[in-house]
């Protein structure tokens, strides 16, 4: 792989241990000539404050729910000019909640864009409020005793849009994320990647442990790496954990995060059952 400069410049105002910074750096390594569309969220800040800008690419900041629609318009304009740049929507799980119809609409139209949801499992930019992807029992400022509902499976929902490429990724496995971007960039049409992005202040763990926590999520099977490019397959890092016996450290994963403080053994049992179900659900797609 040729060595490229990061599109995320140093000195950007992200928090210590920010997973978005990792993701954005990987993005620049994989894509040749991206234009980046950013709705409201943490990355609005990460991208810098005028007159400084931290992403070395054309960046368009747009309203919260609008990003995939704006990207659709840009795709139309580029098509008319024969411009081949990759149009990337870089959003959080908040943007994917409020802009769900917008993502869905762009997917249905099979717009020639890459949508990346850097999923830190809550509205972090406004100070840790519960989102559609917040983990069951996770404490946020709007679920102070723990979230009472299950998270939605955004990537699987996007899969059901019958688009050419859908994948999950993790900031704990950046080479895998880069491979997926490399694959996605060769495909035309709507491509979707949900990037698991553990957030130190939001999940209450030390800022030196972002990658570690992200890997724990994969090893205990709570976050599953897979991709669909016509056929669903589990990615190498997750493949061993198809075998339930090989999944390790769920308790440690949960106990390492302040947001799960006070969680008891029966809760962990329930979470384990839900993880099993998620694997079975995806295996059914794998075997389809």
């Amino acid at each position: 792989m040729e060595v490229k400069e990061s599109i995320l410049l140093s000195g950007n105002p992200s928090c210590q241990g920010c997973p978005h910074s990792l993701g954005l750096r990987a993005l620049g390594l994989a894509l040749d000539d991206p234009v980046v569309i950013i709705p409201a969220g943490c990355s609005t800040i990460v991208a810098g404050i005028h007159p400084k800008a931290t992403i070395n690419a054309p960046v368009l900041h747009v309203p919260f729910a609008s990003a995939p629609a704006v990207a659709s318009g840009i795709a139309s304009a580029f098509r008319r000019e024969g411009k081949k740049k990759q149009i990337v929507v870089w959003m959080g799980d908040g943007g994917a909640d409020i802009g769900f119809a917008t993502i869905s609409g762009a997917a249905v139209r099979n717009e020639d864009i890459i949508v990346i949801v850097s999923d830190n499992e809550a509205y972090m930019n406004t100070g840790i409020q519960s989102s559609g992807t917040t983990f069951w029992k996770a404490k946020t400022t709007t679920s102070p005793t723990g979230k009472s509902e299950e998270r939605k499976d955004l990537a699987a929902i996007m899969l059901m849009h019958r688009v050419p490429y859908v994948a999950t990724a993790s900031v704990g496995y950046l080479p895998d994320f880069i491979n997926k971007l490399e694959k996605a960039k060769k495909i035309r049409g709507f491509r979707f990647i949900q990037l698991h992005s553990p957030c130190p202040p939001g999940w209450r763990f030390d800022s030196s442990k972002t990658v570690e926590i992200a890997r724990m999520a994969v090893k205990c099977g709570a976050w599953i790496l897979w991709e669909f490019d016509g056929k669903l397959s589990f990615s190498p890092a997750s493949r061993p954990y198809k075998d339930k016996m090989k999944r390790t450290g769920l308790t440690e994963y949960l106990r390492a995060q302040g947001r799960f403080k006070g969680i008891d053994d029966s809760d962990i049992e329930t979470i384990e059952k839900n993880i099993d179900m998620q694997w079975k659900f995806l295996e059914a797609f794998e075997n389809f």
């Binding site: 991208a47 810098g48 404050i49 005028h50 992403i55 070395n56 054309p58 960046v59």
Partner: peptide, 9 residues
Amino acid sequence: AFTVGCIGP
């Protein structure tokens, strides 16, 4: 590579 609509003073 320029940014449109970012936070400003």
